[in-house]
Amino acid sequence: MDKATNMSAEEWGDFTGQVAFEILMEIGTAESAAALTAAKVADRTVDAARVLDKLDDLGDAAKAADKLEDISDGTKLPKVPEELGPVLNKVDDMSPGSPGHKAWIQGGIDRGAAFKLTSPRIADNLWDAKRGAPTVFADELAQLKKAGYIEKDGHMVPKNNIKCG
């Protein structure tokens, strides 16, 4: 339990692999990268042995009655570092499939902007097993690919802008 109590936010992030989100809106130069969306606090492909160790810690912490903190409705939750939770973008209309969301991506496409990919391209981030459908992140990638973008060095970039030699 001590280990769990003393784990840094980074370690919790490593363990949970939770997604944080950020929007880095246009910076202003052609080389600037507009972030897509899903930025990982930690890579999900962390060492499995470390994850298993952390599961032991979590079990202790989750069960312990003395590791509770108040939440708004007066019930208690096991104490978790603030950094654990995803921090989503503050853009108002980013609901998936909404005109605002598609338009935001399209705006970057129209400018020929690069989109920084900050989530690992693994099945968990691309396919939503619960809905049996692509994730919102995958939808964004599909929109970019349809517009002629390709992935290069962790960014989605317009294929025509790739210079050889």
């Binding site: 997604v19 899903a38 995803p86 980013m94 939503d128 619960k130």
Partner: peptide
């Protein structure tokens, strides 16, 4: 699931 990793996916669901 408590919103999972992406509220947008939860909203879709």
């Amino acid at each position: 699931n408590d919103l999972g990793d992406d509220t947008r996916d939860a909203l879709l669901e």
